[in-house]
Each structure stands twice: as C-alpha cells, then as structure tokens.
Design a protein around this nucleic acid. Structure first.
Lengths: 142, 142
DNA sequence: GGTATATTGAAAATCGTTTTCATTGTTGAT
DNA sequence: ATCAACAATGAAAACGATTTTCAATATACC
C-alpha cells in the first residue's frame, strides 16, 4: 500500500498543501511506525531536520489519523500514540508492563463475543479497545 | 462490604490521618460511585461542603485507588474516572458514544480467550482493559 | 494539654496538547 | 515566470487536567 499516495491524495482532495515538512514527517513515521508518541516522532524528526517544530509534527500526525493511514491510541501512560493502519483489519494490543514492548494481535472469536455482549445490552458497536497488560517472555526470564 | 472500614484501616496502617474531609468525600463517592471524574466528584462535594478543595478531592480519590476500594479508568475523553471496586470481580465497559451511558459487563469466555492469546505470545497477563464503544438502545431509537 | 507530624485549601507548577500569529511557502491563474 | 490568494510553519503562548508547593490548621499519640 502506498501511504504517500493516500496522503497526497487526501491533501489534494481537501485543498491542503503538499509541503516538505509533511513529506519528511511521513517518511520518518513510516520508517518506525510502531506506536510512536508525538514527542518521540518529534525527537526522531528533529535529529535529522532540526528546524521542524513540534507543532508541525503534531498537526501532521493528526492529518495521518484523519486520512486513515494512522490511528491514535492511548495506553494510559498519559501520552497519545499513533500507529500505522495497515489496511482495514482491526487489531488489539499486548503490552509488557516491564519493558514497554507492544505486540499486536487479532482474534475474531473475541470480536464475535464482544458483539454478542453488546447485542445483549442493546448496543450497536462502532468501535472497541482491548489491551492486555502483562509481562513478556523476555522479562519473565530475567 | 464496609468501605469505610477498609479505608480507615488503610489510613491507620499507613500512619495517615482520618479527617472529616476524607470521610465526607468517601461518603459522597459511595453515594454515586458510577465512574465519576475528579471534577464531577469535586462539584458534588462542593455543593454540600463549599470549603473542601479540588486538591483534597483529588488526593482522596488517589487514596481510594491505593487501598483498592476504587479503580481509575480512562475512557479517552481526557478525564480520569474512578469507580467503586465491588469485590474482586473484573468487569469491562460498554460506552455509548452519543449519551455517555456506561454499562458494566463481565464475560468469562472473553477473559479465557485473552489468556490464550497472551500465552501464545509468551505473555503472563496481569491486567486488561476492554471497552466497547457504540450506540445504546435509547439513542438508537431516537 | 502538648508536641510532632500529616492534612488542608489556594495558588502555582507541571505535563501533554492545542492554538495564536506573524512570516514563509505553495498553488493555481494569468 | 509572476502574481495574488491562502495554507503552512515554528516559536511562543494558551489550554485543560493533574500534581505540587506552602503556610496555616487539624489529628494522633504521649
């Protein structure tokens, strides 16, 4: 999937402008798209391009979310995080409380049970969030 | 379960002091313990006891969480919320995106599948968070 | 009661996020 | 290519929720 095209198409369609900063930030985001906070991406970008500001990184990440190439997550550490959306498939997260490792997983059975629960309570689900916190195998060993 | 006793025991054990404010805040919290934010509880308390400050409410809620009679939640609306922990049973949440209604549910089958997923990835689960966002039956009708 | 020490409330500090604003850059029309 | 319109930028300020500071007060224990 060509994320650059999705993004530039979105910009064009919205009458927004295709700037160097936006392309640089997308590039850096794609290089390591695993659940970066705004702060982390900003530091990564700034190390190579010192005059790109925090606000621009922040605004660009919001654009990524708007056009669907990224999703904003919150794992309860007080920082919003963005992750690349590879296609439509939903996935959830396993998070190591010790080292911070984040593993993605999918489980259709769980999703189905969720729908059942919702139906029983008269809800129509739009969205969900499932996070499992624990200790990963590396950290268990230590 | 006598939450007042759990709380005062915790205070005693920690060498903390049993104050009027703390008892008042616990009282108000118990009266309507359904997922209140600090702000909401503060307003509720202040309406009856105008000279209890926000900081005291906040600090007391943290104490509730520490001694296990409350748990802090975050439903992504930018406000931390506290809910009464009635015993050990874990439960998850259905949240109406339109009216904000919060319904609690439990589903052992989902929990079991979660454990399986975790095991497959070498994780030992300590904790989890599951939230289903959607539209409740009242709001669907309208 | 007296003393040590925790608590309080108001205000200030903090943290992550968002906005403002003057300047700069991009786009599309000419 | 030049121009005018307007979006984007970066620095700093504003923001909202949370947390801390600090002098005054209250509590617990002797």
């Amino acid at each position: 999937m060509d994320f650059r095209k999705v993004f530039t198409d979105y910009l064009a369609q919205k009458g927004l402008k295709n700037t160097n900063q936006r392309m640089i930030i997308l590039q850096e985001f794609l290089e390591q798209a695993s659940h970066l906070s705004t702060e982390e991406l900003y530091l990564k970008v700034r190390s190579k391009y010192p005059n790109i500001g925090y606000a621009t990184v922040h605004r660009t990440l919001k654009l990524f979310a708007e056009c669907g190439i990224a999703a904003e997550r919150n794992f309860g550490d007080g920082q919003g995080r963005f992750e690349l959306m590879l296609g439509e498939q939903h996935h959830d997260h396993l998070i190591c409380s010790r080292c911070g490792l984040i593993v993605e997983f999918e489980n259709p059975q769980i999703e189905q049970l969720q729908n059942e629960v919702a139906r029983r309570h008269g809800f129509v689900i739009e969205n969900h969030r499932l996070e499992l916190f624990g200790i990963c195998s590396d950290c268990t060993g230590k």
